[in-house]
């Protein structure tokens, strides 16, 4: 089992708030890691640090052995890092299908020169990405709304589109930030299945979620974060059972 993402000594503070206090963490190929912790523990901040939204004060992140430090977001994504956002961040002026179609790891239509001189290449890449997007939409149960504007869907559907969009990358590592918040019914099973299939194909997945049942069902392992630190790592059931962690979680 190989390490896909290796985080070493990651530190970050915003003014007086410490969001990462010497975090060491490894995400392994084919495994789903659940990240739990109370509000403000620094879970989203950890994702931001890994994906390059926020620069760390110290420490390093490696993807497949390559140091990512100093790289921009798009460069990290092109190396196979994919994530979703706690607050959706879809493109409301694009249809669901187009939301997915801007997301492949390589986007032929991004270069004006290629468009001008090799329009055939672009056309082929577009057809390819369309096929793939439709397939993902089918798998996530969004095929019916493929041509609807993304902004017009229900919240739960939008959440699913966020996950579906992240799948277009063929990522080595997928970071899901609260995929279940506000989602109910059918989608529960859909996301579980999609993530399991993904892990089975060798992707390293990390899920932040407050829905403990979801985490317990899905994850091979869990990590408890508090105040920018990893306090415990182990089976999710054990983490939940630990009275000290529960106390920190609820703040009783």
């Amino acid at each position: 089992m190989s390490a896909v993402v290796e985080i070493r000594g990651l530190e970050k503070r915003f003014g007086g708030i410490v969001v990462a206090d010497g975090i060491d963490l490894t995400l392994t190929a084919g495994r789903v890691l659940g990240l739990i912790g109370p509000n403000g523990a620094g879970k989203t901040s950890l994702f931001n640090l890994i994906s390059g939204v926020v620069r760390p004060d110290a420490g390093s992140v490696r993807l497949d052995g390559r140091p990512l430090d100093g790289m921009k977001m798009h460069q990290r994504a092109r190396l196979g890092l994919s994530r979703t956002w706690q607050n959706l961040r879809l493109f409301p002026s694009l249809s669901v299908l187009d939301n997915l179609m801007v997301a492949p790891r390589r986007y032929a239509g991004e270069s004006l020169l290629r468009l001008a001189f090799f329009p055939g290449v672009v056309r082929q890449a577009e057809a390819e990405s369309r096929r793939k997007a439709l397939q993902i939409l089918e798998r996530t149960g969004l095929a019916d709304v493929a041509n609807k504007p993304a902004g017009g869907l229900t919240f739960g559907q939008q959440k699913l589109v966020g996950v579906a969009r992240a799948l277009m990358n063929d990522a080595r590592c997928l970071l899901l930030d609260e995929p279940m918040a506000g989602v109910e019914g059918q989608a529960y099973q859909t996301i579980q299945n999609v993530v399991r299939d993904l892990a089975a194909s060798g992707v390293a997945v990390c899920v932040v979620e407050h829905n403990v049942a979801f985490i317990r069902d899905l994850c091979d392992e869990g990590v408890f974060m508090f105040a920018g630190r990893v306090l415990a790592r182990g089976a999710v059931a054990d983490l939940i059972a630990d009275p000290r962690l529960t106390e920190l979680y609820f703040g009783t």
Partner: peptide, 29 residues
């Protein structure tokens, strides 16, 4: 340009630059 693959990306970029970059698109370019 505006209604092809490039235009789709421009539209996404206008909507949300952060999400756009996170998909591997080079916003500045």
């Amino acid at each position: 340009v505006a209604h092809g693959a490039y235009g789709r990306a421009m539209s996404a970029l206008r909507d949300d630059e952060l999400a756009f970059s996170m998909l591997g698109r080079n916003a500045v370019a």
